[in-house]
Amino acid sequence: MKRLLMIATCASMAACTGHLPSTQYSELDDVRAAIQKARDAGAEQCAPAELAKAEARQLHAAHELDEGSSYDQDAASFLIDDGKASADQAYAKCTAAKPKPAPKPKPVVIQPKPAPKPMVVKPEVIALDGVFFESNSANLTASSTATLDKAVEALKKRADVKVEVAAHTDSGGKASYNEHLSGLRAQAVRGYLVSHGIDATRLTAKGYGEASPIADNATKEGRAKNRRVELIIK
């Protein structure tokens, strides 16, 4: 009898060194999967309380399954359901907390800038009003010198520019003659400018004849306007 009691005592003492139950019951498959799903969603960080509860319920259920009685089976079922609910809650919390990836920005289409239109720089044209010639001649009238002297002063101030002296006629007479005459007149003006101190290399002369009218050649006034000398700044 004594021996029996000693054995019972030792058995009781040994029973006190318990260990956690194994969770490898098939009944735990659902809760195990739910826990894994929550873990994969990062529940240890985003839903630690819910995940811990689910894990604990799983462990507790495993213990009840270890016990094996019908009462323990019922307890295990309750714990399994509760654990799965907690795991699902953890998963839902984590997936809801994760910010949706920002929509991809629409590709930026960079439209090539339209090629700049070639800049058309109109040459600066200075009309030498008051410059006249004797009829059918390239001889400057005396009154023309006042205008030409002003031109000389202007060109001296703008020593960096080159100038074309352009002479025009009206449409009276032959075009070839008019072109020849306008050429002579342009040369006459150029000669005056050079003789008054303008560098000859800065000056060119060209007769355009009747080709570039600025007024109606049908009227006297128009023809007077078309007979002209201009300085074209290059």
Binding site: C16, T17, A49, L51, A52, K53, E55, A56
Partner: peptide
């Protein structure tokens, strides 16, 4: 997570103790 799990395990331990399951 570890702290929460520790609390849950304590609760189980106390529950089991209440059922006489000291081990």
């Amino acid at each position: 997570y570890e702290a929460h799990f520790a609390r849950e395990l304590v609760a189980i331990a106390e529950d089991e103790l209440g059922h006489g399951e000291a081990s």
